[in-house]
Write a protein that binds this DNA or RNA. Structure first.
Lengths: 194, 194
DNA sequence: AATAAAAATTGATGTAGATCAATAAAAACG
DNA sequence: CGTTTTTATTGATCTACATCAATTTTTATT
């Protein structure tokens, strides 16, 4: 609860009552490793705030899985398009380990929005943040595989530790083989120089 | 004015007074062909609602220009990251022809948000829409050049008429030469079959 | 209409990164 | 532990698309 309230106060200066009311409409849910928070094709009815564990946000394509993002503690995750339009999700969300979330349902969210402007402002700021982050990420997609990896390694070093390399490759839209070669080229020269 | 009010009412059910108050903080501005609505490096202080003409949203890179988007009548355009954080813009916006916009300044926007929840809701819905549209576009970036073009031609046929092919190539992150070849492969077979 | 400028096409060649196949290394597990 | 499974590395080859250079076509300008 403390973490959650600290988190939301980074965006909006909620009073104790407002923050508590927010927290109170969230439901704690646990997911075992491998369980799905959302299945592609179903309608996403919840926004999740992760309090423990790691989830992947991915798309099934043919027989493989394309990983779009990895989220962990103090991140929000949902398929916003599906959630807002009540349309079938084009992505899935899966727990990579033991995951605990605070879930906010569509109805509860709309009720918060109707209740007071502070919640609406929070929603606006979250969406703005999402968009700006996403637009920045889009710039990287136009670069070479090597540049994408180097940028990623610089901006999100914690993820390199946290998830297997083939998932990073998938996020970067390159093959595991190509990423392995990029790392050899990028890292080995530094080691040799020591 | 009619167009603008119709537009904003697609998102929020503004009363006549609310809509008029919104319209009244917008300033009409004209740009000549080639003029900049925003220059990379400067701070973006306005959100523009285009009432006439076409603008490109692009990035300078080395000596060339990478076109990220093209906007025209009844579209909003801004560098949201720069606008929100008052940080230097990483993109520029340029008029492709005679352009008329309704400009909303940062301060006026914040005042609207403070004035009533309906404006804040509008801001939230706009940001949500932007994000969802953008996330959908991201899916395409992982596809082949040919798939990107075919998808684009299907989803935005009006743009094919409206801007030169080399700009479409830039938006799709492929060279004009490659796009020309893709089109030959994709279009000619159909014509031959007639 | 004639000329100039901008945009699109075509060909030749190069290369980043994909794909396929075979180990090797690391992690998970009885 | 050793054994199985998962993940990462390496090599050989292939291909989509880039790059460079030369026309051709289209559009704008006088």
């Amino acid at each position: 609860m403390k973490n959650f309230i600290n988190h939301i106060r980074q965006f909006v200066n909620f009073t104790d009552d407002e923050a508590a009311a927010f927290y109170n409409v969230m439901t704690e849910v646990h997911f075992k490793k491998g369980a799905h928070l959302l299945e592609q094709g179903s309608i996403c009815g919840q926004v999740y705030f992760i309090t423990k564990g790691t989830v992947i946000y991915f798309m099934k394509q043919d027989d493989s899985e394309i990983i779009n993002e990895v989220f962990f503690e103090n991140c929000w995750v949902t398929e916003y398009g599906s959630f807002l339009a009540k349309s079938p999700a084009t992505k899935s969300i899966r727990a990579m380990d033991e995951v605990t979330v605070l879930a906010l349902s569509y109805n509860n969210m709309q009720q918060l929005y109707s209740k007071a402007q502070c919640y609406e402002r929070f929603g606006r700021l979250m969406a703005e943040n999402l968009f700006v982050t996403h637009e920045r990420a889009m710039i990287h997609m136009r670069k070479s595989a090597e540049e994408r990896y180097l940028m990623f390694a610089k901006e999100r070093p914690e993820l390199l530790q946290r998830i297997p390399q083939y998932m990073i490759a998938s996020m970067l839209n390159i093959t595991p083989e190509a990423l392995s070669r990029i790392r050899r080229r990028a890292i080995k020269p530094v080691r040799q120089a020591q």
